[in-house]
């Protein structure tokens, strides 16, 4: 049902590097889980509306009011690598 190739594709979508030793058991685990959740396919849900939110809440707004931001120091305090007031990351190729 789910091949190692599928697992690698999903891993790449998830941005998780998997080596060979990791991919195989994960494929097995996912297969087991997917087999279990396959029971949902038995139900007829054609006429059923999906529930994304469990409470009937809508129209929750905030007003357009400016509130204090963090300082540059507070913001960059979290990172392992910074430069010129910015977060520094490996080169992004466009």
């Amino acid at each position: 049902m789910i091949s190692e190739k599928d697992v690698k594709y999903v891993a790449s979508l998830s941005r998780i590097h998997l080596n060979e030793e990791e991919a195989k058991p994960l494929a097995k685990d996912l297969e087991k889980i997917l087999n279990y959740v396959a029971k949902l396919q038995k139900l007829d849900v054609k006429q059923i509306a999906p529930t994304s939110h469990v409470l009937p809440l809508n129209n929750v707004f905030r007003e357009d009011i400016v509130r204090p931001s963090l300082t540059q120091e507070e913001t960059l305090n979290m990172t392992v690598d910074k430069m010129n007031g910015s977060f520094k990351v490996p080169k992004v190729i466009e």
Partner: peptide, 13 residues
């Protein structure tokens, strides 16, 4: 922003 000298990219949020 791409810093070609430092061979890195910088992010401003």
């Amino acid at each position: 922003m791409h810093d070609h000298n430092a061979n890195c990219s910088l992010v401003d949020y």
